[in-house]
């Protein structure tokens, strides 16, 4: 933790590109610490029972033997075999590949509904934006601990860093944490353009996890997922929602308005609830089908769902499943 703080202090002398808010904010620092702590705890829970050590840059899995030919690296010569049989053979190993991962977080105005924390930041619990931030931070931390290069792309919102390309070094993770901790949701997502932009600078054969409520016309932004498909990117779309919103669980008639602006609507929730449930079902189906159609993986998560379970679903069966190991506890 001290290392993290030292890094943050050092970070203050750097020139952040288009910072929207100074990261030297006590509240932001507190959120970074809190976010880091949550990410570590959750990652530990995910990795419970995993005792294998990590060796960066070395292949560790033996594959087979090959007859030595001049020019081969003598370090891989098996001396024991030569001593027993006078044969020169070279040991071959399976090479581990790294998986660059980008996390795309939607912090548009619609994600801001729910609880608020100090300083106008979204609460890390009880809001879609906070849930998305925590989920992104944990996933980044988890992957970083596995030595994977991680990147961050924030859609809308107010944040000191809009885009962080995938990197493996430690400071890079800290920059991502700072960006997430300092982020405030706002503005219009513009999902279609944002996804196209994110897809354009994503490395081929990488993994992209999108955390969004997708609250724009699906027919408009779903085709943008094609940008990822064309680059053979493994796409996981985590569809976030707020239970109270999608069940229209309000007792009194109210004037509803969107944080992103637009017309206000006076609605009696009791009268509209049944019809709203039908609309939600249609909408969720439309998004799920669209994501699957473009080769992505669809996960739906409520801002009240336990993070560990969602992460487990996200990792298991995804592109990480062959590269990382996880503890047995907390299987969903």
């Amino acid at each position: 933790m001290r290392l993290c703080l030292r890094f943050l202090r050092k970070l203050g002398s750097l020139d952040a590109h288009e910072p929207t808010q100074s990261p030297w904010n006590a509240v932001v620092l507190s959120r970074v610490r809190h976010l880091h702590l949550r990410a570590r705890v959750l990652t530990d829970a995910l990795m419970m029972g995993d005792h294998r050590s990590r060796r960066v840059g070395q292949a560790i899995e033996f594959a087979d033997y090959q007859e030595y030919t001049p020019g081969m690296d003598l370090r891989h010569l098996d001396w024991r075999v030569m001593g027993r049989s006078d044969r020169l053979v070279v040991r071959r190993f399976e090479t581990e590949t790294e998986l660059p991962t980008s996390v795309v977080v939607d912090l548009s105005g619609d994600m801001s509904t729910g609880d608020r924390a100090e300083g106008g930041f979204p609460s890390l619990e009880g809001s879609k934006a906070g849930y998305a931030i925590t989920l992104a931070a944990t996933l980044l931390y988890f992957l970083h601990r596995h030595g994977e290069p991680v990147g961050l792309e924030v859609i809308a919102g107010e944040t000191p860093f809009r885009t962080l390309p995938p990197r493996s070094h430690r400071n890079h993770l800290q920059q991502a944490f700072l960006a997430l901790a300092a982020a405030k949701p706002g503005g219009v997502a513009g999902l279609q353009a944002a996804l196209v932009r994110a897809g354009s600078h994503t490395r081929r054969r990488s993994w992209v996890a999108v955390f969004s409520d997708g609250m724009e016309e699906p027919a408009h932004w779903l085709p943008a997922l094609g940008a990822f498909a064309r680059r053979r990117v493994d796409l996981s779309f985590v569809h976030l929602f707020d239970e109270q919103e999608l069940s229209l669980d309000y007792s009194q008639p109210s004037v509803f308005f969107s944080p992103e602006g637009g017309a206000e609507l006076a609605v009696d929730p009791a009268a509209a609830r049944a019809e709203f449930a039908k609309v939600v079902a249609e909408y969720v189906g439309e998004v799920r089908d669209g994501v699957v159609r473009w080769g992505g993986r669809y996960l739906r998560a409520s801002s009240r769902d336990p993070l560990e379970g969602v992460l487990r679903k996200l990792i298991v069966g995804g592109p990480l499943s062959s590269n990382v190991t996880m503890g047995a506890r907390g299987e969903v």
Partner: peptide, 17 residues
């Protein structure tokens, strides 16, 4: 109604209305 409520799923609510 007197109450005003920030709502993140206005797109869906507009469909319902």
């Amino acid at each position: 109604p007197r109450d005003r409520r920030s709502f993140g799923a206005m797109m869906l609510l507009q469909r319902v209305v």
